[in-house]
Amino acid sequence: MSSNGMDRSKLSKSMLRKAPEMQALANRIDKAMPYRFPRGYMEWNELRALVAMQMVSIAHSGVVKKLSSMDDQAGYFNAHRYSLWAVQQAPIYCLSKEVFHAMLNTTINEEIIKNLKISLPTMMLLFPDNSLRSSEAAVDHLVIHTSDLRYPENSTGKNFGHEVKYLSQEKKTIIHCTTVDQNSITWLAGIGIEDGKVNYDKSNRLGVFTVDKDDDEFLDIIRQIALMTYIILQSNPEMIGEVAESEIPKTVGKGFTPQQKGKYIKPRIIRVPNNKKAKVESPTTREGSHSSKRTHWRKAHYRNIQSKDGQPKLVYVRVAIINPQ
């Protein structure tokens, strides 16, 4: 965890005005990846500026030395992972509100991790507006990168005149989840996987600030979201869909002109399939043969199961009233 304590949107705009190199890089990123995001998510204009800031910072040896001297692992890994996402031109996925909230209500069965296959080393997730907060501010996106000792080439890249080098690691497989919240505070969570077993990095000193209980709970949430996203990509392809043209605003912030259809690219979206949409069930509905001792809401969530070949799978369980009186 590290911070400069300034509104992220104001900071990015200020940095772009003061640093022509950063502005030029943001423009090159936009030309290569002319994204437009659906309503209800952060704007691409702000995200590309944030990415450019991270790339420029890690490109300067003086900044890297400063981060190292501060023992700011969060700041250093954050800049590295954002840069990897950019130079690899890795994909972006939006999480729908239903999927996002169901993820928060799900308990991961670590047994299914044994057969988890990481087919996409680097990606970005976008969260619905005002759906997730750190202990400090709103969080609207997450960069995920999985580094594997067997495939170091997946953790390097060159693009936009920048080279991102491989960082050494101790665990066989490490999933890094990192983000910058709207208060410009950097968050980093690690998941180590060795011989099918998960080991969470619970260090309380990942950056220049000490991680307290509330911070740790937030980091657990983003770890869980990362793991569940990988399970969905592996075994629930029916949940991956296209963003409709009607969901894309005609204009996106100041400085942009209306975009013609096909002149931009859209992120993919992870949704509950139409035939499994969450519905509030009637008070007369009872599910299964087990009854609860009291009436209560069962929140929408995912149930972890394994198929006969041991592959992980998520089953969406709808919201319902259990044991109505």
Rank of each mutant, 00 (worst) to 15 (best):
L188D: 04
I240C: 03
P237N: 10
K202W: 05
I248K: 03
K213M: 00
F256P: 01
K202E: 07
T210C: 02
R205T: 00
I269W: 04
Q260W: 03
I191W: 08
Y200L: 15
S282N: 15
N204H: 05
K254P: 08
P273Y: 00
Q259C: 01
D215Q: 08
I248H: 05
L188N: 06
D214G: 06
E245W: 10
R271F: 00
I221V: 13
M239Q: 07
K279D: 08
Y264C: 03
D212S: 03
G241S: 14
G207L: 00
V243S: 00
V280I: 11
I191M: 14
R271S: 01
Y200R: 15
E242G: 02
I191G: 09
K263F: 06
N204F: 00
Q259E: 04
S246Y: 12
A226T: 12
M228P: 13
I248F: 05
F218K: 08
K277D: 10
V280W: 14
M228A: 11
L233V: 11
T210S: 04
L233C: 10
V272E: 13
R271I: 12
D195Q: 08
I222K: 09
T285R: 14
P273L: 02
V208S: 10
Q234G: 13
D220R: 12
P258M: 09
I240H: 00
V252I: 12
I225M: 08
M228Q: 15
P237F: 12
S282G: 14
A189C: 09
G196Y: 07
T285S: 09
T251M: 11
Y200K: 15
T251H: 09
A226K: 08
G190F: 03
I269E: 07
Q234V: 12
V252E: 13
E247N: 11
E245V: 15
S184H: 12
P267Y: 09
N204E: 06
T186Q: 14
I265N: 09
V211L: 08
Y230V: 07
I269M: 13
K266P: 11
G207Y: 00
G255D: 11
T285Q: 10
A244Y: 05
I225H: 05
